[in-house]
Design a protein around this nucleic acid. Sequence first.
RNA 1: CGGGGCGUAGCGCAGUCUGGUCAGCGCGCCAGUUUUGGGUACUGGAGGCCCCCGGUUCGAAUCCGGGCGCCCCGACCA
Length: 438
Amino acid sequence: MRLSSFFMPTLKESPADAQIVSHKLMLRAGMIRQTSAGIYAWLPLGWRVLQKIEQIVREEQDAAGAQEILMPTIQSADLWRESGRYDDYGKEMLRITDRHDRDMLYGPTNEEMVTDIFRGFVRSYRQLPLNLYHIQWKFRDEIRPRFGVMRGREFLMKDAYSFDIDAAGARRSYQTMFLAYLRTFARMGLKAIPMRADTGPIGGDLSHEFIILAETGESGVFCHRDWMNLDVLADAPGYGDDLQAFFDKCTGIYAATDEKHVPGESPVPEDQLVSARGIEVGHIFYFGTKYSKPMNAVVAGPDGNPVLAEMGSYGIGVSRLAGAIIEASHDDHGIIWPDSVAPFNVGLVNLKPGDSQTDTVCQDLYHKLRAAGLDVLYDDRDERPGVKFADMDLIGLPWQLVVGPRGLKNGTVELKRRATGQKEEVSEEFALTRLIGG
RNA sequence: CGGGGCGUAGCGCAGUCUGGUCAGCGCGCCAGUUUUGGGUACUGGAGGCCCCCGGUUCGAAUCCGGGCGCCCCGACCA
């Protein structure tokens, strides 16, 4: 993509509305545009990131055996009346009526709808276990939206729903998602700590929140200091393996949100307890027959008698992650994207567009990098070098490849790693090998 | 929803108390010159129902009334 024609409205100054760093940087980098309180349009750069995040989530869900579907954003109130949640959910739920005066709502979650789909088609325990997920926009009419996309009213969420024949099966499904979540966040360069959590309006008796530690986190969290340097995935089993031991190990190390943490009563000695703030990026629940019972989602069991489906649901805040990743990875100059979610792999900077030599070299690099499958943002704008460097640092692409007359005189280009700031004067060939090789 | 604040050019702001001389500044944008490896300098230019409606007044960005929007702090949530 040529930057001269790429829609990326960067800002030198932060809009006054933004308070936290990720919100400021997303606005300054031209990733998003607020359209109402807590509602955002995603501009090309932001949309690319969102799709990268989404794809990682998708791949890991698929690998864990879940199947992707797509349910509507607008739901009928009738389904929610069946489960009893229409009255329970309160003002957070955006209620609307259609032209026939039918009660509808913009879905804040999809337990009822997926349960309806399930009961419409699944007849036998032999069709279980089943895990269906979708990645869809949700709306929760937060009292006070804030922190940009981290706490919006409209947000993109991956929500999966598992169906099992019995509690043992449901716990396996839960553990599988538990592992999938750890893998998913790790792939985004995040260390997410699973913490015992409240189940909230979703209900149920087993629940974990996946928390990223960050100063700007919304909730207070507590965990054993062992979590700090622990890589739980180091010896993690595969999705098909028995996960009980792994699950026990992970949940055996203390970690709890302030809702569950009782000061003075935690099993961790004071001097080994870390108190911090965290961002919730995922939340999983096992809630048994909370929905299958009122909605009569039953299948025939081995003995031919009807059995209520044992269910769980599993959410990941996809749009929130875009902000959370920035909170976890930035410096004074801007964003530092982990390679896996970066909107482009490489920023190619032509310091002197119009100069036949730099133009030629840039063209050559651009085509070769793209031919190798890399996403390249080519800054071919007629701008001052300083502007280009500043923009490149701001938008945080993992690699910057800088081509200017000074270097070319010596046959070199500059390769800069955004995360470390390390710069190397290297040959074109070396740069290509380095970038394409990984 | 309680408490606080804000709304003037794309962004950041001054002007509002003390009505007129008030449509301003910086950045950005456009044109030109200049500069050419970390937001270059100069010149010229475009761009504003001063959030909206009503009122007071000879006269309102400014005073009064009523709306709307947005932000912050608190109680709730992916």
